[in-house]
Every structure is written in C-alpha cells, then in structure tokens.
Write a protein that binds this DNA or RNA. Sequence first.
DNA 1: TTGTTGACCGAGT
DNA 2: AACTCGGCCAACA
Length: 140
Amino acid sequence: MKKYLNQKDLPSLNNGKKTAEKADKPASFFLTVYKIARQVPRGRVTSYGAIAEASGLKITGRMVGWAMAAAGGAKPAVPAHRVVNSKGELSGAAHFATPTLMQELLEQEGIEVKNNKIINFQSVFWNPATPGPKKRVTKQ
DNA sequence: TTGTTGACCGAGT
DNA sequence: AACTCGGCCAACA
C-alpha cells in the first residue's frame, strides 16, 4: 500500500489544481479532516463519522478513514489513534506500525481498551461539532 | 474508461 | 441478531 510522507505528496491538493475549480471549496478534504482530527484533546476520542459530519463537506466516514490511512507522515502529526468507529472499536488498529500501537497510545492517555474496544466510550467521546459545553443542540 | 475497494454509518430486510 | 445497501471521493487495476 502506498504511503504519503507529507502533504506535498498528497493527491489532489491545491497545487494539484485538479479539483480546485472553485475557490470557495477546499481542493481536498484531507486537510479539513486532519485539521479536525488534530483538535481532539488528549484522553478523548472521536469517530470517523463525526469528523465527516463536522467537516461540513459531503464526505462520509469512509473518506475520513481513507484520509487517516494517508495521514501517517503528515506534519504536524495527526493523532489518528484518537479516531475510532461509531461503536468505539479500534477499527484502524491494523494500519499502525504494529497492530497494538493504537491501543497502547490510547492507554497512555488514560483510555481503557479491552478487546479492541474502548471502555466508557460514551464518556471519552469528543464531538468535533460541539467541542464546547454540551448545551445547545443545533441539530436539524 | 469502467469497476472495485476502502481505518464508515445508519436504515432497511 | 446478521446481513445488505446506498452514499460519499479518490486510487487502483
């Protein structure tokens, strides 16, 4: 599998001018996804779908996962280990340097992982769409 | 160029 | 409870 070492190597970015016909839209959702992922605080996690939703772009969790797969060498680093699926499972663990690395990183941040799944997922979940106080539910 | 495949997700069978 | 399916975008074969 091909790996991207840094942003310059990413496909379809601004310099690629392929998808950048309009200026009011990002040329690629990669950067948007990375930006959101980097806001996840230490000791908290979010989900692929939540990032997709918060991006405001028409992308789905699948695309976020794909972006994460390419995030390996991105600078600044993307805390991809803090992104799990909607059930709190470490579905991306296999993509790390070692199959156990993702879990180890999470445990270092005080997150309990058992059976490839986060314990107390609900309480450590961090929603990028509502990062602040959890009042105000502007959902339509 | 067309078709298949994802670190997904929720709704429908 | 297990399974399929549509939606999304880009990369491969």
